[in-house]
Write a protein that binds this DNA or RNA. Structure first.
Lengths: 373, 373
DNA sequence: CTGAAAGCGCTTACAG
DNA sequence: CTGAAAGCGCTTACAG
């Protein structure tokens, strides 16, 4: 394939000269006003077809690709894109299947509306620079999975644009969507107690923005600034306490990143305990996968030697070996609804809902079984 | 959590009034010129610390969150974001693990550079509207996995911005990056012939923008407008022909979408053939997974009854049951390098490379075995 | 250390 | 059907 020589030439020229033609130049070339050229692109009914064609021909000749989006955006006070703010490294959004599904949903919503989706890194651990946030040209924000004390959340809100909060504590005046993390987590733990387990271990993803891997005591758990972490641990706690198990005795291993590899460390620490837990609850499937992997490497069997329950029900959970018992939540729908809630605000319709809680459920598969201990 | 009442109030006000404060208003409030307010944000060394603080206080009072990104972008002729153009539905980018890894790599590059990443749907099948593309406020484009005859590619290039082509035929003046799809595919097929297989079936993802699922004859294969499809099929062809197997006799089943579910259909069609193929080559791991699933449901064993080789080596390939023999390609690195090649152009450095081919290799795992037929 | 002026590229009433 | 004028919100030499 090759594009026509004309535009290829023009591209090279521009690369050297560093500037593109403007609407003004096209107008001069055709011998009309800028308004007319603008109309040729934006309001075809405002000029004769013949003139419109002449405009486009001149544009092509000059290598003019149409009105500059930034200038148009300034004039129209619309950028045509929404921003998604996500915790820490942006690449992380792509590494976590649950986040990927969430963004899949958001992107369906933006596509419906003909909007672009601007991904904004919440700042790497090192350089948490709000600059990129403040300079993001968007019409609104989806704020996803940020620590609740993260100054970037406030910074985003300060831009006074429509926004939607996802999996975060509500903030007055900002619609939010999520799940009842605590209730869902309770389901996971209750499933295990109902199978007779009394000896537990928990593998959790990070509790705070800058935390390190290791055991986390109750104070640390309760002070967690990621809502899902805090709420899920509380759910486990309440279910186990209700079954007469002392939460203070349940080891909670925090993994600094929500990737399977990190759970290997957790497994090492947890399997070395005496007595060894018969049941492990993980705050994500990703961690459950990594844990299962490590258990198998250690020569133990799931669920015979140790039961595992995850959280998220990502697609791989069903295909895992053994298939993972986990909590299902509708990730794609969460993204879709979040996107639509934001878009409804952009259109200055009333937001369809203001505080949405999506349903969750326990999915029983093969990774947890009755204990004989 | 709650933000301070002041800005919370301001946000609500703005939601009603529909307008935010401007730099001009801040200047008036402080009693200085706009230049000074601008300097407070952009060139702290240009004014006294005391004045700068007064500016920020006034800004906060007025609910001014800093210079408007669009206006700044227009003035500076920089948007601070790059665009990623991807085939068809944007949500598809998130559904395909290989694409996800690619974008993960791109996002690492954009983060390094402090840029945003704007995801641009290549247009749904229905409304392939270049409008969204032409109105994307970005400084350059990564063009990923578009059909080579897709008018959006030309439209993008016509914007005369820095661009990088990924997994697509080269276009003069535009750096590109990819793999040698044909050679890599040959490796996959040769592995199978070396195991004694003589009876093949192929499961391919789509050959053209608007294709439907079904068997694809040679003419259709050679006319494929997705480079990876065309090149991989050619690779299989050349390896099999070299082994004395007539390619014309090899059934190629095209799946309209690169999702596991679609491969079930392919399996149904291919398994019904007499004689039944002993070896299946899939152009992606996603399709291989779906195929394996269907084979197992049909009561057959892999690799005993039928061998399967995939393409991509996504992480799940190693965890599949049996582990999938496949072709490895460095997805994340591809994205990272593509991103950096684009960013190098933005900085008006020479692009580091202009035609990059990344290495691939066969990864032998458990899904293909010697045939006894 | 501060301000007046020019201009980034466009769209939108409005008048003709 | 077409054009002159105003203005979207900012930054950058430049002069003081």
């Amino acid at each position: 394939m090759d594009i026509n020589p004309e535009s290829s030439k023009a591209r090279q020229t521009s690369r050297v000269s560093g500037r593109r033609a403007t609407l003004k130049e096209v107008a001069a070339e055709v011998g009309v006003s800028r308004a007319t050229v603008s109309n040729a692109y934006n309001r075809p009914d405002q000029l004769s077809e013949e003139l419109r064609v002449r405009v486009f021909e001149a544009a092509r000749r000059l290598g003019y690709a149409g009105p500059d989006p930034t200038a148009r955006g300034l004039r129209k006070q619309r950028t045509g894109a929404i921003g998604a703010l996500y915790t820490d490294r942006l690449s992380y959004a792509f590494a976590d299947p649950a986040a990927v599904m969430f963004f899949e949903g958001v992107s369906v919503a933006t596509e419906e509306a003909g909007l672009g989706l601007l991904l904004i890194p919440g700042g790497s651990l090192g350089q948490r620079d709000p600059e990129i946030l403040m300079s993001a040209a968007v019409d609104g924000f989806v704020i996803f999975c940020m620590a609740e004390d993260d100054p970037l959340v406030e910074a985003t809100l300060r831009r006074q644009m429509p926004a939607v909060l996802v999996d975060q504590p509500p903030i007055e005046g900002v619609p939010s969507i999520g799940i009842d993390d605590e209730a869902a987590a309770r389901l996971a733990a209750e499933h295990l107690t109902s199978l007779g387990h009394r000896s537990f271990g928990v593998v959790s993803f990070d509790l705070d923005k800058d935390s390190k891997s290791g055991f986390a005591d109750i104070d640390k758990q309760h002070a967690a600034t990621y809502l899902p972490s805090r709420a899920r641990l509380r759910g486990y706690e309440s279910a186990l306490e209700a079954a007469g198990i002392s939460w203070a005795d349940v080891p909670v291993y925090e993994c600094a990143e929500n990737v399977p590899g990190m759970a290997a460390e957790a497994a090492e620490a947890l399997l070395a305990l005496a007595p060894r837990p018969t049941a492990i609850i993980a705050t994500s499937d990703q961690l459950a996968f990594g844990f299962m992997e490590a258990v198998k490497k250690a020569g133990l069997s799931i669920p015979e030697d140790i039961s595992v329950v995850g959280f998220d029900d990502v697609p791989e959970a069903a295909r895992a070996n053994p298939p993972l018992t986990t909590i299902h939540q509708p990730h794609v729908e969460k993204g879709l609804r979040a996107g639509r809630m934001l878009i409804a605000q952009l259109r200055e319709e009333e937001p369809p809902e203001t505080q949405v809680l999506l349903p969750t459920r326990l999915v029983v598969r093969g990774s947890a079984a009755r204990t004989d201990h």
